[in-house]
């Protein structure tokens, strides 16, 4: 972290960072699927707080609205309907080998994060200091996101929406009863 940030900011950064990491660990280690899902929700909250601290209020609000408010609710819904049984009866299906492999991948990712956090990011990816905060003060929280999205990157945006539309159509086709099925 840079030195010049106020103590309050630094405190909150470490607080939410710690909460996010601990919740993520609990999410992976809990046996009850519902509890695990709730810890994931907690991770997302902490990430939203971190986004807000980066002056990305819009992303923070979307994180809570889309991930915590919609996707995780559907997850919970499915978990409850699946009726997996008591947590103590759930066994980890994978063997020792897979666990070791997962741990190795996790360690590799951690090393990568440490390496990247020490590396110098390219000039073109860096915004001037305080750019986001100034933009939000001047035009509101949405315009800095909406402007480029609907002007410069409109084509990419529309192509993405066609992708989502295809997913919706696919879901409808799968969910629809075939004509031969009894009503």
């Amino acid at each position: 972290m840079p030195e010049h940030l106020p103590l309050f900011y630094v405190f909150n950064f470490y607080l939410f960072g710690l909460v996010a990491i601990v919740s993520a660990l609990l999410f992976v280690t809990r046996k009850s699927p519902v509890t695990a899902a709730l810890w994931l929700v907690n991770t997302m909250f902490s990430l939203a707080a971190l986004y807000v601290m980066l002056d990305a209020q819009f992303i923070g609000a979307m994180q809570v609205l889309v991930y915590a408010g919609a996707i995780m609710v559907v997850f919970l819904f499915v978990i409850m309907l699946l009726n997996l049984g008591h947590p103590s009866e759930l066994a980890d299906a994978r063997g020792r080998g897979w666990q070791m492999a997962a741990a190795l991948v996790g360690l590799a990712l951690l090393a990568e994060i440490f390496a990247l956090s020490r590396a110098q990011s390219p000039e073109s990816l860096e915004l001037p200091a305080g750019y986001a905060a100034r933009e939000i003060m001047a035009t509101g929280a949405i315009t800095p996101v909406a402007g480029p999205l609907f002007n410069e990157y409109l084509l990419a945006f529309e192509v993405t929406s066609i992708l989502l539309l295809a997913a919706v159509v696919g879901a409808v086709v799968l969910g629809k009863r075939r004509s031969g099925d009894a009503r």
């Binding site: 979307m62 609205l65 915590a68 408010g69 409850m80």
Partner: peptide, 23 residues
Amino acid sequence: PVGFLFILAVSSLGVYGIVLAGW
């Protein structure tokens, strides 16, 4: 600055209480 989106985000969490109570 995101006032209204904050409301949508928070109100989307209201469902957790009821779902978890039921489960």
